[in-house]
Design a protein around this nucleic acid. Sequence first.
RNA 1: GCCGAAGUGGCGGAAUUGGUAGACGCGCACGACUCAAAAUCGUGUAUCGCAAGAUGUGAGAGUUCGAUUCUCUCCUUCGGCACCA
Length: 992
Amino acid sequence: MEKKSKYDHKKIEAKWQKKWVKDKTYETKDPSTGSGRAGSKKPKAYVLDMFPYPSGDGLHVGHPKGYIATDIYSRFKRMNGFNVLHPMGWDAFGLPAENYAIKNKINPEVAVKKNVKRFREQIDKIGFDYDWSHEINTTDPKYYKWTQWIFLQLYKKGLAHESWEPINWCPSCKTGLANEDLENGKCERCGSEVEKKPMRQWILKITDYAERLLSDLDALNWPESVKESQRNWIGKSEGSEISFPIKTKYKYVLLHGWRSSSKTCFFPWLKKELEAEGHEVIALDMPHPLLPDVVEQADYVLSKVKFDENTILLGHSLGSVVSYRILEKLKTPIHKLILVAGLIEPKFRDHDRLLAKYLMSWKFDFEKIKKTVGEIVILEDNNDVIIPDGESNVIKQALGGYNYRLEAEKAHFCGTVEPLVLEHSLDKIKVFTTRADTLFGATYLVVAPEHPIIERLSPQIDNIKEVRKYVAKASKRTEIERTAEGKDKTGVKLEGLTAINPVNNKEIPIWVADYVLPDYGTGAIMAVPAHDERDYQFAKKFNLPVIQVIGEDLPTRLENWGQAYAGYGKLINSGNFTGMESTKAKGAITKLARGQMVTKYKLRDWVFSRQRYWGEPIPIIHCPKCGVVPVPEKELPVVLPKVKSYEPTGTGESPLAAISKWVNVKCPICGEKAKRETNTMPQWAGSSWYHLRYIDPKNNKALVDKKKEKYWSPVDVYVGGTEHATRHLIYARFWHKFLFDIGAVSQTEPYARLKNQGMILGADNRKMSKRWGNVINPDDIVRDFGADTLRVYEMFMGPFEQGASWSTDNLMGARRFVEKVWRLSQRLRTAGSSSKALEVLLHKTIKQVTSDIDNFNYNTAISALMILTNEWEKVGGVTKEDWLIFLKLFAPFAPHLAEELWSNPPAGGGQKGSIHLAKWPEFDEKKLVSDTVTLVIQVNGKTRESIIVDRDTSQEEAVKMALNNDIIKKWVGEVVPKKIIYVPNRLLNLVV
RNA sequence: GCCGAAGUGGCGGAAUUGGUAGACGCGCACGACUCAAAAUCGUGUAUCGCAAGAUGUGAGAGUUCGAUUCUCUCCUUCGGCACCA
């Protein structure tokens, strides 16, 4: 009689979970400990789950799917002799946690603690092999000290800066958002339509890494879909930047600065360049090179030059002061004033300069000057060594106009060639195009409503009122409204302005239209209606000319097509380039147009500040005297203060701004009163480097110990959902590359291999959610069916990367299999060996399970294990030797039961040591082949019969056997086969 | 619109250097056990057909002795990007 005992999953699972913790079965070995059990001698496997944010709802059965997969993989690796790091932690900063706290009126810190506890309980019940001594929490000040440290390094390298550009603002979440946080122009979190809101924010220059983020994708072992998403998101396109001059001819008056002359600095070069564009240029040498008296200089210029409405006055440095005096005295207006490193007040960085002696207090009638000048452009050099920072802001306040902060070729614009000065002196519209080959077909230009040229040249735009109305309407419309109207184009012509096509000098009109995006390229395009569908539709609507320039072989009557031809081909109507191939013409025409080849990306910089409470404080101090001052590294972390009201203010300021005790600090540089930055970091900050913290979770001296980092990096397998394709996975790659650049880490990529888990849907095929009432709690499943059953079921649902809906019926199937294993353990044969066929099957199973786990093909691995148990059950038992091999194969999937049957089988006589530390079985290549094989016999390619023959039967033998077979005889008849196809050990095909 | 992935029984799915399509599981049917039920075990289960046989991997064509697998055209579903010049 077989001894019957019941499979009690509750007892078994609780027992082993406790014992594994006690025995430290899954302890990660520190590579730096050197001898003995040290991990450094072993190959390593760093297996990582995307860590959860501990929401208040707890886990549903979909969450652990990925954890089960990594658990199986890491157990498999451990049994194969690898030192395994398989950690878990909490991504607890950010809106989900904060909103939960607000809704339930608990402090976020308290809420997070509570939720973490609950998550941990749920996770522990499933029997994972996490080494909890490596646990991390992004909201722990000891953790975010280093998140802040990374920010400071980014700041030091110029990759973090403030910006005042309009950003996406979610009125419901009451915070600014990054581009990545939008979904079809709506807030990804709450679905609200976002507004463009100008406000101060912190920006990380992820665009500096665009090219590397793109090109390094190729070498990653990631799903093609994720790589493709990232490629789309980065959006590289190669094209040309080409400038279209605006028609008017001007008279330029160039005034040099202190101690220079019209023969020094960039003056001779600029004169030549402007003249080449057909303008008149007067570069005067003022009578006294030291310029002691600006009145005297101004009078001299006025005596030599006749100013009119076509005059553009350019003053460099002190020349700008002369220009103010001139303008004060002028009776007639001039077109434009350009101030290059201009100044108002006689404050200089080098006070010893001779100039100071001559200085008098300067006072100007700026109101009069404003009236006299149509347009004012102020150029400021970022690295000016003479004029203090912010001087041009003072000028701008006094004069209005446009202020550009630029990088001059030589400090204070003292280079002999200063292209930026030329660029801002000329009225040109620069466009970006990927189709420079179609330049001869450009029949008009279009600028985005936000394009600065509109206001800069507003005096020359005859219908400026109408244009402004259109611009206002366009900016009011949300992103969605702009695009929702799809192909219905709107726009207004800029009357009075005419551009010149640089290759054929044809005059073409300029339009403003919102189908041109301000943020991409140059915010302006050349429209080629014949070869661009959008331009074509616009041209049709507004009756603009269409000139075909591609397609020697195509019908030339383009009007009849009803659409543009966007393909490549041989050029027509293109002067000397007619007949040339598009691909060749791109470069050649760009060259002729004096343009340049450039690469553009759709990727935008990362808006990094949030106007919310629950995030890492940005470690910056604002000092009225010293400006932006980073918090000294030794003062990190800047701890998030405890507050009573942590609700968002909605004003664009974080709730932190109200805590004066925390906000008001002394400037670390000058010691004067200063204020802390009150914005916090986005949710994605802590997760951008957590894979490094796991390696060395308690380090307070460095981001990560270098030796440990070198040993464990990169993550060997990373598992999580696809929703992170263009956010977390891009951000983390960016930070990791940056950390590599500053020598903090040894690898350029954080995650060598990525697996996405498919989502588990509810039984009703909908996403599991409280709203649908279809949520399954893993606690219930573990209680009623056992963790091992849950694990086997979730892995058997289908391919790991594919979604599937929950089915309790199918869960029962997994339970049956687990019970079958339990039953088989009581039918062990102590004597005798297994049959040859079973031996082959066992070795085939070892081979398949081994490679299936490596490839995350868990469904077929389990299927193979089922086949094996089915066979054993058929023959009524299994030898103990074979059984122990099976248990090891089974162990990663059902660790509790495998351990029980290994260490403490109901029949007695357990093995020593945990099965999870046992050596993974190997298969014998020789035992994979059986003595006989099934040979399929086809006649004319149709299967008619299959016969069992000896292995490696010869063709003659096989044909003989086939022709003797009654069924085959019937099909072949008396004829001799025309052709015989023989695939040894598989198939014989007779063609008659 | 562009890019990517995929379409196989009642259901989840398996099989591709081109070689027996439907492994394994669910469901279903019948049988054993039982007073009965559950559980368990056994047998069967692509479609049409009594059978012989024919048909069959989204549709259509092609290459081949032979195609779920390769080529072309098209359809559908899912995912990413989307007026990105």
